[in-house]
């Protein structure tokens, strides 16, 4: 091998870069986040259901929140009609966070796991969480 030292050094860098996830996560538990739904308000609900179905909310909540924002801020429309025809007041603080008052145990669980940083609370007031 000609210039073997340099080529082998290059290959080691290549190897270190592409196998990085395999050794970086050694000894770290692969813990799936479990967002908690046991806030007092949710427990008192007769029908434990969000504004849309669970699967829809899981996949589309960011889109829904974005649409809600546009609806309120641009069209001055504060009423949301869901797929079942039920009406909700469009408000992050008074509708969403009323039930999901546990931001740290609900929102942040998955967002931290996925390293997503939504900018909701750079304008809105974060809920005060005394209870853990």
């Amino acid at each position: 091998m000609y210039n073997g030292g340099k080529i082998i050094a290059g290959m080691l860098v290549f190897l270190a870069f592409f196998t990085f996830p395999f050794y970086y996560n050694l000894g770290k538990a692969n813990a799936r986040p479990e967002p908690k739904l046991n806030t007092p308000v949710i427990q008192q609900l007769a029908e434990k259901k969000c504004v849309e179905s669970r699967d829809f909310m899981r996949a589309e909540h960011m889109q829904l929140l974005n649409d809600w924002r546009d609806s309120v801020v641009r069209d001055n429309n504060r009423i949301y009609k869901n797929r079942e025809g039920k009406e909700f007041s469009i408000s992050l603080q008074n509708t969403c966070m009323n039930c999901h008052s546990n931001k740290k145990e609900f929102c942040d669980k998955c967002h931290n796991y996925m390293a997503v940083k939504p900018y909701c609370f750079s304008c809105h007031i974060e809920p005060k969480e005394n209870k853990s």
Binding site: F20, P21, Y24, N25, K28, A29, N30, M114, A115
Partner: peptide, 8 residues
């Protein structure tokens, strides 16, 4: 890599 690391 955010999918490949526990703490990003």
């Amino acid at each position: 890599f955010r999918f490949f690391m526990q703490d990003v």
